[in-house]
Amino acid sequence: MTTRITSRRAAVRAASPPARRRSRGGATSGAALYRQWWTPLLWTAPAIAVIVGFGIFPFVNTVVLSFTDARPLGGGGSWVGWENYARLLTDSAFWLATRNSIFYAVVAVPLLVVLPLVLAQLVVTRIPGIGFFRTGFYAPVVASMVAVALVWQSLLSERGPVNSALQQFGLISSPIPFLSDTTLLLLSAIALTVWKGLGWYMIFYLAALANVPKELYEAAELDGAGPVRQFLHITVPGVRLTMLLIAIMSGIGSLRVFTEIYVLGGATGGLGGQARTLPFYIRDTALDPIAGNAGYGAAVSVALFLLTVGLAVLSHRLGSEKEEP
């Protein structure tokens, strides 16, 4: 029996030496090559250390911290059980921040799913000068957020160009308080997020549009379908998966907003902090050197994480539901 196996092995070896060599050198059995088992670990150690130490451990640590009264400068840190979570339930500033973050996502996500697609459809065909337009649409993505937020702050100020233009055309009699009214401030920040995100998501759609068969458009054109109908009946179904991906990405992005509100609304986050988002609130409660309570901030962080997961699941549900008919 032993001899038979050996001989079969020998036969295999004799029959296909190149195949054997390929499997040795290929991706599947490279381990055999290593005289030192630690070589792969050496190559990957820095990445593993940072990913685990600053990507995964912090989440576990946040959950642990949320059951303590830790202080940002040290001290505290004793176990308080569910106290922080009980406090969340009655903290009106927390609920306001949660509402603001959800409002942000609800308004921004549809805009960021639809507008970049329209934009991509407009620049997908290579007509003369299209590179110029593509680069122009991408420019806000590259610009620094603080810098462009300062520009928008000037544009939308009481005496700024937007208000003075509207007044000049007689559309309004007194300036619109874009930056001092809480709702308008949130909407202005959303407009800034959308403006800066358009080009970024356009790139994803450009890649997706390349995979929509162009015969479909030709057939539709022969049937006399106009650009709007082509868009709705060919483009949209063709890039549905990308739309879902962008809904999730932009939703998570909306829940992460801090800088827009910080710059447009002044360091306080709107009048009396009324326009603060959850990350803003986390920073204010947890990391203030004197009054900060990292334990409570960690509880808010866990809430933010759960909200993120909820939003991703919801987008996924809505996305796959549409697929049914």
Binding site: R283, L304, T308
Partner: peptide, 23 residues
């Protein structure tokens, strides 16, 4: 390692920044 990478991407920076600061 691959799964550690995937899992680490689930946590938005803002939801772990309190811990990061403490670290």
């Amino acid at each position: 390692f691959y799964w550690l990478l995937i899992v680490s991407m689930m946590f938005p920076f803002e939801s772990i920044m309190v811990s990061l600061y403490m670290q």
